[in-house]
Amino acid sequence: MKPVLEITDLKIEFDTFEGTSHVLDGIHLSLGKKDTLGLVGETGCGKSITAKAILRLLPVPPARLVSGEILFGGEDLLKKSDEEMKEIRGRQIAMVFQDPMTFLNPVFSIEEQLVDVISAHSNRNGSRKEIDRKEAKKKAVALLGEVKIPQPDVRIKSYPHEFSGGMRQRVLIAMALSRSPQVLIADEPTTALDVTIQAQILKLLHELVERHGNSVLLISHDLGVVAKVCRRIAVMYAGSIVENCSTEALFNEPFHPYTQGLLNSILTFSKRKDAAQGIQGGIPDLIHPPSGCRFHPRCSRAMKICEIEKPSPVEAEKNHVVSCHLYPVRKVKSF
């Protein structure tokens, strides 16, 4: 299956006051048609940066592209002009952000914002603008109904501050899905919500993408959230993907020591007798990242080579890619 979105060797640096921060250290990712891929990792590992890089929303400077390409429909997004990107944003690749409290404009009604988003690309020929807006409003009401906002025709007149966090996230999801994008990137869409609301939003998101057939890249620091929605999971550590496999494989037989550590950190009531273990050490400084494999200072199974050489992605089993020196080198092209 040809992937819809394919990221190869994406390296991005940030020029900061203290020095250059090597934020993304060669990301490889691919997202198939109607696929759901979860991107998991600790805070600061570069998940959101990856998402913003796809839509070219990183501020340049301080962000700087070192190498890599992001292929979307066979074309490199990193080579597109700003005008071309505007056509892609929202229409072909849409994004749902983390915090619904701050990602809606506080001084405009939901209707105003939704209608502008829906007609963002259609009102190039100004003459039919009014009709367009009327149609856009109808569509906006329908969308709000679809994300299960009660009385959508009334509530559409509300302002963001009159909505709860969960409802605002529903509005943001409606916004992102309004033009049936091929790819939906959801950047920690439930992190800022209550646990009960989290489950509702995940369920809704799952239903919607099933129905609309969008490809989804779901970013989260919560393995449980990703497991509920995604078919595949990519685990990210300090700017690179360390493991990429199906959800079942990841939970049943994780290969990378970091993934194993992550799974050992989950608190469960059943199955395990001992307490959650956690991973020793802290998030590395990305201005002076560890040499070789960036995980080696925290890795219990680190070897000499881990300090010297960065491991390449290896297909240790079919469709199970891991970047670790513990596994025999056998280069793979796609995964």
Partner: peptide, 17 residues
Amino acid sequence: HKDFVLNEKAQGISDRL
């Protein structure tokens, strides 16, 4: 530099708007 402006950009709303 607010979040909602980033969202509006990500939704493909024109700079002028």
